[in-house]
Simulated assay, not measured.
Amino acid sequence: MKKQMYYKLLALTKEEIDILEGADVNQSLYTDDVDFIVDSNKLLTKNKLIDIRKHPRFVHFPEHKHNFIELIYVYKGSFRQVVNSQKLTLKEGELIFLNQQISHEVLPSEYRDIAINFIIKPEFFNYILTFLDNDNIICDFLLTTLYTNDARAEYLYFKVSQNKEIHETIDKIMWELYKPSTMSEATIKLLVGLLLIELAKNSDSIEGYSANDYEKKLVLDTLNYIDTNYKTATLYEISDKLMQPHYKLSRIIKKYTELTFNELLQEKRLSKAAELLKSTNLPISETAQSIGYENLTYFYKIFKEKYNKTPKKYRDTVS
């Protein structure tokens, strides 16, 4: 498997052939925006939340941002980039998480330098976060990236070139994405969850993390609470847990996320409902009850507002 993957990745892509013949980076492959913000819709097929692609070699990839979470893994050789004006050279086996606010450019690489871009839509992590403990550097990074309105650019750089378990897990994820089967979607979620756990266990190898301030920590604790207690969660209960007046916590949540507590709770419940409709045969009425909605009419109304389909039509579309 590993040798087959290596030769597949070593082969020149059409984009790389064009580059070797003198072409610059074709930005239309990545975005329709005037600003160079790489668009996940350009790189992912419809309804897909995660995929991988080899980063094009031999060319200076200009400064850009992206509207998704990017994980870059150095499969072979090295990978040179400039992140927020800081030059980083990732070695073989190392990886880096970049959030949507980060700005970076990539320097030209050689033939045997192979870096893999994981393109991950934020909603992919709704399920994955349940694998992680609340007091966790990766969990904090993801929750900040997914739910808060903090414009600060952040990245996590993992110097794990000697960690065999992490490399084997990433190889398995790549294989499932390159050679999908009927169970690949569930397998990938489990493998990514396992990868994050392994990375969290190696927190001493992480560089580039910015600590959260007090208010931000309250928001992260609230988001963790919603993630694990979405069926019964209330603002008053989490306020008591955090020993904060409910009106103060409500204001802080709104400040950082631009959403109220109830809006965040509804987003979580509806994303869980969509996951259940897609992956189970649970009746729609039981699906609504399992996420905290006793009023089926109200559930239908808010689900259709979010997904532009009734729960039944949504299930029919994705099944």
Rank of each mutant, 00 (worst) to 15 (best):
M1K: 14
K3Q: 13
Y6R: 08
Y7W: 13
L10R: 12
T13A: 06
T13R: 01
T13G: 06
E15N: 10
E16K: 07
L20M: 03
G22N: 03
G22Y: 04
A23K: 12
L29I: 12
Y30D: 01
D32M: 06
D32C: 06
I37A: 03
L43S: 09
L43K: 02
K48H: 10
K48L: 00
D51L: 00
H55V: 14
H64T: 02
K65S: 13
H66Y: 08
N67R: 03
N67L: 08
F68T: 04
I69N: 06
I72A: 09
Y73A: 06
F79V: 08
S85P: 02
K87Q: 15
T89R: 12
N99Y: 05
I102M: 13
L107R: 10
P108S: 04
P108R: 10
D113F: 05
F125L: 09
Y127C: 01
L132I: 06
D133K: 11
N136A: 09
N136T: 07
I137N: 02
L143E: 15
T144V: 12
L146D: 04
L146P: 01
A151Q: 14
Y157K: 10
F158V: 08
F158W: 07
I166W: 00
H167P: 01
I170Y: 10
I170F: 02
K172Q: 11
L177P: 07
K179H: 15
K179M: 11
I188P: 00
L191C: 09
L194I: 08
L196W: 08
E198A: 10
I206T: 01
Y209L: 11
Y214F: 13
D221W: 08
T222L: 06
D227L: 15
E237L: 08
S239Y: 01
D240F: 06
K241D: 05
L242R: 04
M243E: 11
K255A: 04
K255F: 12
N262E: 15
E267L: 13
A273C: 12
E275N: 12
L276W: 05
L277Q: 00
T280G: 03
T287D: 07
T287K: 04
S290E: 11
S290D: 07
S290L: 09
I291E: 04
I291G: 07
I291C: 02
G292Y: 02
L296Q: 11
T297W: 09
T297K: 14
Y298H: 14
K304I: 05
K304W: 05
E305R: 12
Y307P: 06
Y307N: 04
N308D: 12
N308M: 07
K312T: 11
K312L: 15
Y314L: 02
